[in-house]
Design a binder for these strands. Structure first.
Lengths: 215, 215, 215, 215
DNA sequence: AATGAATGAGCCTTCATTCAT
DNA sequence: GATGAATGAAGGCTCATTCAT
């Protein structure tokens, strides 16, 4: 309906072949907004512009839909990050900057940015999905940043620190920024939200400054 | 704490008038574990050792119980932090360290540490409670840290930075640590969790190093 | 509390010996207002100024209270009517008038006037009580009027009619008047209710005129 | 009536789109029998041959079902009465007779005759519905009879009386007859019920005799 | 006698899931 | 493939009833 505007004048009413994606997109919105349990499949179907029964043509159950939401949204993003790292030539500091801003541009700042909130909220209810997400997204993401930090240490660009902790210290603010947008900001609190790019920039600066080989 | 051991040591007799607190404690556990919508009041009652109807002697509705959980758990913690700041004499860096570790000891590391996860998950479903939490906890907490950073800048101990961003960069990792414990860690992922005190120590170090007046 | 004002200066706080009557009075009010099923015993107890538990000192169950309400309120009224008939000396028309107005003064126009509505509403749920009421109130009441009509026919004062039907034709309006007051009038409809005494007077007139030996 | 025998004679196939009417009919039966509060929606659904959830496809709540019961059953009846009056040519007495017997045939003597009992019982619990019923049924019904009586007075057929009171005196017995059938008669009391047509005939006779311009 | 906290069965209502069309 | 009516299990909440004090 309000989707991709490829309607031309032909009466191809709606391409049925990307029904699943439309459903997943609708489900993502609602799961992020209300949580898994409080989201009704009627609403998901309505938002995707289909009937409730249609949903079951593509997904076996509400839980299967949940898995699809998490899995579909997330795999390309990490891969892209890994590509960036592979291709990058330059200082580790610049790579970190690029990763942070890229993350925001491609993930945190888009509607996919709701996924971390969703996973944090539902991890304990869906350990299997959490396992998947942890392995395919979190660990791979952490490895990206950890590798970069380690590279900087090895090259003498950064002073030696506990890499895992350092990555936590950098990713924490990023994640919270995404979580915040989909919780307090979205509900009308935190009106005076800090502008994201500015916040990320300052955070990375602070982080890099903290890492700089002292003296 | 101060009421449990009374009435001889036998605990067969019905514990009397702190029912509300027991119910709130049980509800906190389950809300954090499953989320608001997925928590059954039967389970809350069972965990508190009472029947379902008893719950309604003390709380008008599931939502009222939710509010009580948030409100009751949180007010003393912030006040205590403010007390620490008022009484503190020493460097801003030391005060920040003390705030961070105090936060973990009194809040993040206890079962109260589940509240941030709960609030992030449910903020959009309970804007009123989110409002309350934002004003009474987040803003006051941020003010605590912001005041301390500002103090350090004014005294020349820290270099000038955007204070709000800096506070976000410090609190982000703390919050994520708490969130993580009650999501991925609690569901069996992230087994190799970083030891909290070590993580906090490293994070603060990094942060303070980043703030240090350069040169 | 707001009851009979015999408190003198002695600290006889409330005479407990007429607790049952207070409870029955409170129950009558609420049963008439809301019906049996929709009346809560908490409300009955509260209106009587006692706790809910106290109610069970006097009545075994909600149903027992219902029976007590019906039985207690009704026995004296019929007896009084029978007394009037026994003592009366005069025309049958005058006796009918007197019965009608007496009924209104002692029953229909008082709070007892709610009982017919209550019995009509609940007869099918409480066949035993309905049986009792039918025998002890309705049949005896009908007999009172029927005897009087018959007496008038026998004496030539009235023309011969089907006595049972005639009694129905006279009592119908009376009962409806009572029912109405406790249904539509009580809920704000039927604001322009006809003044009762006037209505009864006109009804009896019409009835007696209808009975008058034609010619 | 006109829809049951369709779809061949097999009734195994699910009857389709007059579900609402079937539900309303079932609800009328049970509301009249037990009262609103004591009627379980499970029973309503079972009597209509559907599951509990189905009920909520057609009615938002138990209260909405109640409103539908009252409103649906009642509108045609009054209209029909008004039609009779408009078309009638003859004496006012005959018109009254016709109205009374028509009322019984089309309303009081059918299952719709339970509605007055239901409304009397529940008026105070549903003031909005009572308002509606009062305006759309009672007032219009009263107007029908009042107009007829007035017509008789104007033409000299009846003696002058307070018209409103007279109407009350005539409708009272009719209403009570209907109420009675659905309360005491239905519960096994009042076994020796007077035959309705005979009772109505006698009542109208008495009434008309009472109205007759004396001498 | 009186209380009121506690209980648990029961009812209204919701919603994931199914299935005939 | 698509629909939407139908289902029934489950959960929030109420309230008659009990019982320790």
């Amino acid at each position: 309906m309000q989707t991709t505007a490829t309607r031309t004048e032909s009466r191809r009413e709606r391409r049925p072949e990307d029904r699943p994606q439309e459903l997943v997109a609708a489900a993502l919105d609602l799961f992020v907004e209300k949580g898994f349990a409080a989201t009704r499949l009627d609403d998901v179907a309505a938002r995707a512009g289909v009937s409730k029964g249609t949903l079951y043509l593509y997904f076996d159950s509400k839980e299967a839909l949940f898995k699809a939401v998490i899995e579909s949204a997330v795999i390309p993003a990490v891969a892209q990050g890994e590509q960036v790292v592979r291709d990058f030539q330059g200082s580790s500091a610049d790579l970190l900057r690029q990763l942070v801003h890229g993350w925001w541009r491609l993930f945190g700042g888009t509607k996919l940015g709701g996924i971390p909130k969703l996973m944090v909220s539902e991890a304990r209810n869906f350990p299997g999905v959490a396992q998947f997400y942890h392995e395919q997204v979190i660990q791979r993401g952490v490895r990206l940043f950890a590798g970069t930090v380690q590279r900087g240490i090895d090259s003498g660009e950064f002073r030696p620190v506990d890499v895992e902790c350092a990555v936590g210290a950098l990713l924490g603010p990023l994640m919270m920024k995404a979580l915040w947008r989909h919780s307090f900001v979205a509900c009308g609190c935190g009106i005076s939200e800090i502008e994201p790019e500015h916040f990320l920039e300052t955070t990375v600066d602070l982080f890099l400054n903290g890492l700089r080989a002292s003296r």
